[in-house]
Design a protein around this nucleic acid. Structure first.
Length: 415
DNA sequence: TCTGGGGTCCTAGGACCC
DNA sequence: TCTGGGGTCCTAGGACCC
């Protein structure tokens, strides 16, 4: 059997851990630039606040119901995520960390409700984060079980088996299945398919034609035929990107260059963390697509490295060259990004016969930079082209303290 | 005033090879 | 009038996930 542990309203729950006064009160967490709603507590969901809703559109609601609003604090959520995952790891044979707030659990040895409940209680007691656990024969069904656990049970645990499978699939909306998104859901509804059970019993050829091979796999998984197993070792990433919307629109080349330098450096740092190198880089700019009055310009360009690299200096300078090629003045840019592609292991880099760069020396330099930044805090050492003013910085007006990762932000208790 | 960020997989079609 | 067959690789676009 496979389990899926999923943190309830994860970001909102993290914000609540050190702030008991907002428990049982509506909480929302906003995206970068305090733009959209990306997490909601149950109370906020009941008020009708939708996922992805622009914050400015619900200003009235926020005021009326005294909703607690937070900017995203990834340092906090990432740290809580690690803590939760460590506990889960210690409880089962192996886990697959599927996202910041979800993990598949290997229950191939044994599972019953008591075991699942005790795992759930341990996570709650040790971290303050409530989770739900769904258990079933396949990953797709474990996802279904988790939905049921979250929505309909008191103890946050649900085990899907032969006795209840038919009944659950019959009430489970097809659009809530793992792999059915908004477009597929519309297509299915149009064809008169509304439940998971209906989907399971569809003609396989029809599924293949309309939803490709993934649809067929989904159907199999609903029948209890495993297509996806628990992958405890994370595969190497195929692309890595750093992209941001700006706090305000930017026209100035030098400010853009600083931003791009930062994004490129961030990509290089992520590459080194994965022990990977990239062979190409893509840089893009976009104007504000929501502003219909100004003219739009969304250029991008791909450039290649003759020898795959993860060196910040090389990647930043290539990114800046790319920016130079696509930048046009007279446009107001709202968003920019750097993507590194064609990624391989740093151990598999094919050296060039005519390479003029002393790569061993550069690697040592980057190692030192990473170590300093790890010990002293991120971006203690950085490239000059990254600038110091950060005039492109994102807006975060409701940021909570980094309770668990910053000494200066430690909670103070008054007695 | 104000609309996120980071990924994966699959398929069709074009370009190329012999 | 009439123009093959079998294959690979790459990319863009579209779907999905969190």
């Amino acid at each position: 059997m496979i389990g899926l542990a999923d943190c309830n309203n994860f970001y909102a729950s993290c914000e609540r851990v050190f702030k008991p006064s907002i428990r049982n009160k509506p909480v929302i967490v906003l995206s970068n630039n305090d733009g959209c709603v990306i997490a909601r507590s149950n109370e906020s969901k009941l008020l009708g606040i939708k996922m992805g809703e622009p914050a400015f559109k619900i200003k009235g609601l926020i005021k009326k119901y005294n909703i607690n609003v937070f900017s995203t604090n990834f340092a906090l959520y990432g740290d809580f995520s690690n803590r939760v995952m460590e506990i889960l790891k210690s409880e089962v044979k192996s886990i697959e960390v599927y996202s910041i707030d979800e993990a598949f659990l290997d229950f191939s040895d044994f599972i019953n409700a008591e075991r699942a409940i005790s795992i759930r209680e341990k996570v709650k007691r040790w971290t303050g984060i409530p989770i739900s656990i769904g258990v079933a024969p396949t990953k797709t069904l474990a996802k279904v079980a988790n939905h049921i656990a979250k929505k309909y049970t008191k103890n946050g645990v649900f085990i899907l088996n032969n006795n209840n499978l038919q009944r659950i699939l019959n009430i489970f909306p097809v659009e809530d299945l793992w792999g059915i998104g908004i477009k597929y859901a519309k297509k299915l509804n149009y064809a008169g398919i509304y439940t998971a059970l209906q989907f399971r019993d569809l003609d396989t050829d029809w599924i293949k034609r309309n939803f490709s091979i993934n649809g067929v796999r989904l159907q199999d998984e609903l029948k209890g035929i495993k297509h996806y197993s628990i992958e405890s070792v994370l595969p190497r990433k195929k692309t890595i990107c750093t992209t941001r919307s700006f706090g305000q629109e930017i026209q100035d080349y030098m400010i853009l260059k600083e931003a791009i330098s930062n994004f490129a450096n961030s990509c290089a740092t992520k590459l080194r963390k994965e022990e990977s190198c990239c062979s190409s880089i893509s840089v893009f700019l976009t104007t504000n697509k929501f502003n219909t009055k100004t003219s739009q310009y969304c250029p991008s360009i791909d450039l290649y490295f003759s020898t795959p690299t993860n060196d910040s200096i090389e990647i930043v300078s290539k990114a800046n060259y790319a920016l130079k090629m696509i930048y046009k003045k007279n446009y107001l840019y709202k968003k920019a990004g750097v993507i590194v592609k064609n990624i391989i292991s740093q151990e598999e880099v094919q050296m060039s016969l005519f390479d003029t760069v002393d790569r061993r020396k550069k690697r040592k330099l980057m190692c030192s930079v990473d170590r300093i930044n790890m010990i002293m805090g991120r971006d203690k050492v950085y490239l000059a082209s990254q600038g110091v003013q950060k005039r492109w910085a994102i807006k975060q007006q409701q940021l909570s303290p980094c309770y668990t990762t910053q000494f200066s932000d430690l909670l103070t208790v008054k007695i």
